[in-house]
Design a protein around this nucleic acid. Structure first.
Lengths: 232, 232
DNA sequence: TTAAATTTGTGTTATAAAACACGTATATTG
DNA sequence: CAATATACGTGTTTTATAACACAAATTTAA
């Protein structure tokens, strides 16, 4: 367990929902949160586990992965800090439907469900904010279902790259995607086999849309990538 | 516009979330709601429209349909009364991402967003209930994505039939699914072409799993149907 | 610093499901 | 009621993508 001071991002980040809390509510949060850390490739929680509190990813990156039919895993979401993970199951009162795996060293902090509920009941703006987050996420999920079921391989992979850009942004060169995934992860994110992810990725490279250096992917033609994604 | 008394189900239904409101809040709701009706096949709202309030489906059945790649529509949800429709977009503050179409004559009632927000801010249990509904729905959507992308045709169609049973139940005979859809709708719900829905449906019938009389589908072997669904 | 394991890359084959074509049955409408 | 549109049913062909196989490169561990 880390010292609380190691993990201030969850409340100080510019987009933190905890900024909606008043001084007194804020101190309830600060006094009850617990901080911890995970190394790269460690499992933060497992599909089927029961959540017991709200987890905020303060630093590092996480993949949320779901076991599919016949061992074909599906990455249902990539999460960057500072953001929550596993809140869906918590709010639904259900078991986790996906496992969270650190793809980089992570620090995260944890707030008991009981305390969270207290804050939601006490602060209507806070409640409405959570409602908005869930509703937006549901929209993303519905759109994703359509993409993964109807787009062709190229469209699905292009879309995944756009999602990664959106979630993690670029390195300082302004074109290298700031996350380094295996081809298998890219495949599980795009609902295809690893071989097809590899093949399609090199097609993109040979067309000049991206350039590749191992797991380092740089976007050379953003508009083309968007076109490939939207044309299916 | 119908008289308010035509539409009491939204607050009197045994599962109505409005039962969480106190007397005073309840009267705010009753005094502000507006009731209306739609005929079979009428469009209640269109994908791209901006929602302006909460819609409660008091009687009738609705399909929520999303335009796909190259005109291949996808039914993202079937809704029975008494339940809300279009609340995702409302809470997200976004445009509708699907159209709602009456598949039977419907009555519905409508509550302005402003009034709804007031109730959410005022009543923490009400807020938490909405959070739970959204979180559960997000879980359903995530599971659905996996099924539609990884299960084979038979598994997808079997799952759709189970969803329909779950949503609409059986007729008095205890085996006929209480909703009557075209083969095209069944296909759009199961992410397949109409021909494949027809073919697979008759396969199920010839195997004795279901029996068919036009759009009337009766489940003869529920456990087998569940097996087909889960084995992919 | 080798050896083993994992990841990446590429070509070939197999297959599930779409696309197409067309006939029949059932609704809808003038 | 006839005429037309819509929905249903079935066989055939095509195709996108999975499955398989295996080599090379890279990483991890011994």
């Amino acid at each position: 367990m880390l010292n609380k001071s190691d993990c201030q991002k969850c409340s100080n980040d510019k987009n933190s929902i905890f900024k909606l809390l008043n001084k007194q509510e804020r101190s309830v949060f600060e006094n009850n949160k617990q901080c911890t850390s995970y190394k790269k490739n460690e499992i933060i929680f497992k599909e089927g586990d029961m959540p017991s509190g709200l987890i905020c990813l303060c630093s590092g990156k996480v993949k949320l992965i779901k076991e599919g039919v016949g061992g074909r895993d599906q990455i249902i979401r990539m999460e960057n800090s500072v953001n929550f993970i596993g809140f869906r199951a918590l709010f639904a009162g259900e078991h986790y439907i996906a496992s969270a795996v650190a793809i980089e060293d992570c620090t995260l902090c944890y707030l008991e469900k009981k305390t969270l509920d207290k804050l939601i009941r006490a602060n209507g703006s806070f409640a409405l904010k959570i409602i908005t987050i869930l509703a937006k996420e549901l929209g993303v999920s519905n759109e994703r279902t359509l993409s993964l079921t109807q787009k062709h391989i190229r469209g699905r992979l292009a879309e995944s790259l756009l999602v990664l850009i959106n979630t993690f942004g670029y390195e300082d060169d302004g074109k290298t995607i700031k996350v380094y995934l295996s081809r298998e992860d890219l495949a599980n994110l795009s609902n295809m086999t690893t071989s097809n992810a590899i093949r399609t990725l090199s097609m993109f490279a040979s067309e000049g849309v991206i350039s590749i250096e191992g797991r380092r992917l740089s976007v050379e033609q953003f508009e083309t990538l968007k076109n490939i994604s939207s044309l299916g």
